[in-house]
């Protein structure tokens, strides 16, 4: 098996709505593949089809080498699913939950006990192994939810928004855990997220999905390059005595691609070429501008999304998060911009 997943014109229609529109992707074995897109882009529908939970309207796909329509039983033997809604029973303990699913996967008793123990230890949950899931925090639940999916040692692991609604600490731990499973077990992982930083951090390749279509597919690094080449620098700069003349001069510099005035004193400048930084600083200094603060920014996948689809993702994203957390926000938005 070379490819973990191959889809050919995979399509799902719900009445008039085309949720997934002729998607063709190839996910390599051992790869972490990210599906990135706003709420309603079709990520979950795509995952559900690949997990044999949903029948495609058109096209087909192979998962772990088996056809999702004709060999759905075989597919199920080789996959694990961590869906957006947790697959666990609140009145059962962690061990009981794992036992149930282990039995459904025909894992022999000894192996099951050993694996349960090992996995619980791996996520530091041995202490709560015999407590009912209902008493857990969301972060604890998600750890058990993930090891439940790993119990059968799947070749392909599907994770639909695995860190949605979690506190920062759990988020970090779970991201590290995902990375670890991928390396240790050579598990191919398909991960959906609306968080750019997550895709950026974890994924070998990212498919950007918008309105059911894959609009871009490449490594995070290459995707970022789409915006304007490797040598583009983005600078966030604060000039307390910013004047229109200064702004005009900056805009006229041939190396500077764009200047966005964020507020009275803040500028967002994108420049190209080796001398980009020098040009920016020199132009400002030549007009007696005081530089109070400067930060170099690398283009994020969010910028890529904006660039490709012409739409912001954040508005749509925060509405989804709100509906999940009752108004809470998912960490500061600045997180999605990485400092070089």
């Amino acid at each position: 098996m070379v490819e973990a997943i191959v889809t050919r014109n995979l399509t799902k229609k719900f009445k008039d709505l085309v949720a997934v529109d002729h998607v063709n992707i190839d996910v390599k074995k051992g790869e972490i593949f990210g599906l990135l897109g706003p709420n309603g882009a079709g990520k979950t529908t795509l995952i559900r089809m690949l997990c044999t939970l949903l029948a495609p309207t058109e096209g087909t796909a192979k998962v772990a080498g088996y056809d999702i329509i004709k060999e759905d039983g075989k597919v199920r033997e080789h996959i694990g699913l961590v869906s957006e809604k947790m697959i666990m029973y609140d009145r059962l303990t962690a061990v009981e939950n794992l036992k149930l699913f282990g039995k459904l996967y025909n894992i022999p008793k000894d192996t099951l006990e050993k694996r349960t123990h090992k996995l619980l230890k791996l996520v530091h949950m041995e202490k709560w192994a015999k407590s009912q899931i209902g008493t857990y925090s969301t972060g604890m639940k998600q750890r058990i939810n993930i090891i439940r999916a790993l119990l059968s040692v799947p070749d392909v692991l599907f994770m639909d928004e695995p860190t949605l609604g979690l506190d920062p600490q759990s988020t970090t731990e779970i991201r590290e855990f995902i990375k670890r499973i991928n390396i240790e077990n050579e598990t191919s992982i398909i991960l959906t997220t609306h968080m750019m930083v997550e895709a950026d951090m974890l994924c070998d390749r990212v498919g950007i999905i918008d309105r059911g279509k894959i609009v871009a597919l490449d490594t995070p690094r290459s995707l970022k390059r789409i915006i304007g080449g490797e040598d583009v620098a983005s600078v966030d700069i604060e000039i307390p005595n910013l004047t229109n003349e200064m702004l005009e001069a900056l805009r006229n510099q041939p190396t500077i691609v764009s200047v966005v005035r964020e507020n009275e004193t803040h500028l967002l400048i994108r420049a190209k070429g080796e001398d980009a930084f020098d040009d920016i600083i020199d132009t400002i200094r030549a007009r007696n501008g005081k530089i109070a603060f400067v930060k170099s920014l690398e283009p994020s996948l969010e910028d890529v999304f904006l660039h490709i689809t012409g739409r912001e993702m954040r508005a749509e994203v925060s509405s989804k998060v709100k509906s999940f957390q009752g108004g809470g926000r998912h960490g500061p938005p600045a997180l999605s911009r990485r400092v070089r």
């Binding site: 199920r76 957006e84 029973y89 459904l104």
Partner: peptide, 13 residues
């Protein structure tokens, strides 16, 4: 509705 059915549906049973 709670999504737990998926866990059984996705198992090889």
């Amino acid at each position: 509705e709670f999504g737990t059915l998926d866990g059984m549906m996705v198992a090889p049973i």
